[in-house]
Amino acid sequence: MKPIVSCRGITKVFGKGELAVHALRGIDLDIMEGDFATLAGPSGSGKTTLLNMVGALDHPTAGEVAIDGQPLSGMSKSALSDLRLNKIGFIFQAYNLVPVLSARENVEFVLRLLRVEPAERRRRADEALAEVGLQGMEGRRPSALSGGQQQRVAIARALVARPRIVLADEPTANLDSTTTKELVDLMYRLNQESGITFLIGTHDPRVMEHSKRHIEMNDGQIESDTRG
C-alpha cells in the first residue's frame, strides 16, 4: 500500500542564530490510507508544526513532504492552494468558518472553489451537514451556532470534497467533554464507515482512546509510533 503522506527527514528551524528554535528534528513518517492516527506530545513538542508540513501549509527547512507521491517542494502558492483544496481537509481548534456565510454556504464554499454545479453542491453540502448531525441548521451563520456545532460544520466542510486526508489540530480543545466525545465518535465513525484518513494532533485522552495508531512526539522528534 502506498502512503498518502510521506515525510522524509523533515526539520524545521524557526529563527536564526542564537534565537533559532528547532521545532522539528528529522521526522520520518508515512500516513497510510484508512489511518485514524493521533499525534500527541508535550506542549512545544512540534505537533502543530508537523501538521502544517503535512498539510502543505508550511515549508520544511530541510527534508521532503510528498502527498500521493508528489513532492511539495518548489510548488507555487496557488498550486499548494489547489493541492490542499483537492486532497486535504482541515479542522482547526478555532473552527475558522467564514462568518458571513451560513453553515451550508461554508460547506458549499469548498465545492464552489472546485467548480461543482450548484444543485450538486447543495445536495452534497446538505448531505455532509446531515452526516455530522446538523440537519435543520443549514441556514444558520456561525455566530448562531455553539462551539460544538461550529466544529461540526468545520468537519462537514473538511469532508465534503472527499479529501485524501483530514488533518485536525486540537479539534476539541475549545469544547466540553460531552461535545468532545460526540465529535470523536463522529470522526471515528466517518473513518470506519467511509474510510476517511485522519491525523489528529491532540492532548486529549478522550481523543486518543479511539486511535488506531498513536504517534508520540517529544522535542521535535517522534518518540513512538504504535498501532493497535
Binding site: G55, S81, D82, R84, F90, N96, V98, L113, A158
Partner: peptide, 16 residues
Amino acid sequence: TREFGGLMAIGMRPAQ
C-alpha cells in the same frame, strides 16, 4: 489576516 489564512488553508488561492 487570520481569516484569510483559514481560507487559504481550505484551498482558496491568494489571488482569489
